[in-house]
Design a protein around this nucleic acid. Structure first.
Lengths: 208, 208
DNA sequence: TGCATGAAGGCACGAGTGTGCTAAAAAATA
DNA sequence: TATTTTTTAGCACACTCGTGCCTTCATGCA
């Protein structure tokens, strides 16, 4: 038998190279040659682990989606664990929502890559399935958060859906602005906007 | 002297071809050859009216921005013309906000093209200036709307900025979702979300 | 010590891109 | 009619892209 390398680890390294290229130069520069060079490999090696360019991109997409979902699920557990209407609960909610935004370097890469893939999926059929999955999963998390935040009897099923879509839209819009106009949409503005949005869910905000 | 053609009209035809290609196949397919074919011309003709590919794209970007801004300014005038806290006023506000969304075919093309250019501007320096201009101008319109909607004494300057950014983020998020997940984010859901957002600005919504 | 096999490296083809440059066509003026 | 200038058309070059296909290398087992 030949040299044994951890194939999964190699694939992960390549995916990380894809992420760096997308974050810096955009998805259209994530070609096999560019990815190989960024990963310190040759095209042939990359192609040994990924049958085609599409497979590499789809796999990268699924990795970033799983990473984001993992963080969201974890933060959602933290939220539920807190006593409602306390300062700690409010902070936990803000932390959860902050996972969508490019607040630090790692989050910024993920947000950037996620946005790039979702936008590309509109015209690139190979990415459509993963885009739908990510949308469903994230909407489910936000939906659960909304159900947790809104008093059960106070609103109808329709309102819950609308509020979930509204929060989701605001989050994606914030993320987009933070990525495209970082000089205007700073982390502080993001936090203010989120805090203002959350005002709807309890009579008076806990902190400013 | 040679054949006289309306150069500006020809340029406009080419720009329209660019819009159609972006709406259907995305910005990355808007090459000179594709644009020329879509416009029923040859590459040489397109290049006669636009010195380079970048100039064509930047000019197309500016056209779509101007078109969107024109609609927004017009709708903003309509809003101010209405008596506040009336049904007609509420409808005028919804109409203004609806200009951001792909609610009909023409709006959809503009929204799609606008999104594509703004996203591309992050990694394509030639588009950066126009992206900044569009962001400033649209933020100005939304800011004026917010000042008009919020009682002058009831909130500080900081709150006005935050609310403007929040509305802007929600609009862009809605637009994005309507473009990327049209089966979920229908025109009806968009309207519900906007109506819910506007609840903040007056005690009770006028219509549902 | 062989050698089969996974890993790595690379060549070449066709298709696509922007752009420099040239050449034909067409029509209003001299 | 002759000329001048815009418009239209197109060739050619260098580049990048994905991919099919082949070679070389290294290594763990027989």
């Amino acid at each position: 038998m030949p040299k044994i390398v951890d194939a999964e680890a190699r694939r992960q390294e390549v995916v990380e190279a894809v992420f760096r290229i997308i974050a810096v130069d955009g998805l259209e520069r994530a070609s096999l040659r560019e990815v190989a060079e960024e990963a310190g490999l040759v095209v042939g090696s990359v192609r040994h682990y990924f049958a085609s360019s599409d497979e590499l991109l789809v796999h990268s997409f699924s990795i970033v989606v799983d990473r984001i979902l993992g963080r969201l699920e974890s933060c959602l557990d933290d939220v539920i664990r807190q006593e409602p209407r306390t300062e700690a609960h409010h902070e936990a909610v803000l932390t959860l929502l902050g996972q969508f935004l490019p607040l630090d370097e790692e989050l910024a890469v993920d947000a950037c890559v996620w946005m790039a893939f979702r936008n590309a999926a509109r015209v690139k059929p190979a990415l459509a399935e993963e885009a739908a999955r990510s949308h469903r999963a994230v909407a489910a998390v936000v939906g659960r958060l909304i159900m947790h935040l809104m008093p059960a009897g106070g609103a109808g099923q329709q309102d819950l859906v609308t509020e979930a879509e509204r929060l989701l839209a605001t989050l994606d819009g914030l993320c987009m602005h933070a990525l495209l106009q970082p000089e205007w949409m700073t982390a502080e503005v993001c936090r203010d906007v989120l805090a203002s949005h959350l005002t709807v869910f309890h009579g008076v905000p806990h902190s400013r």
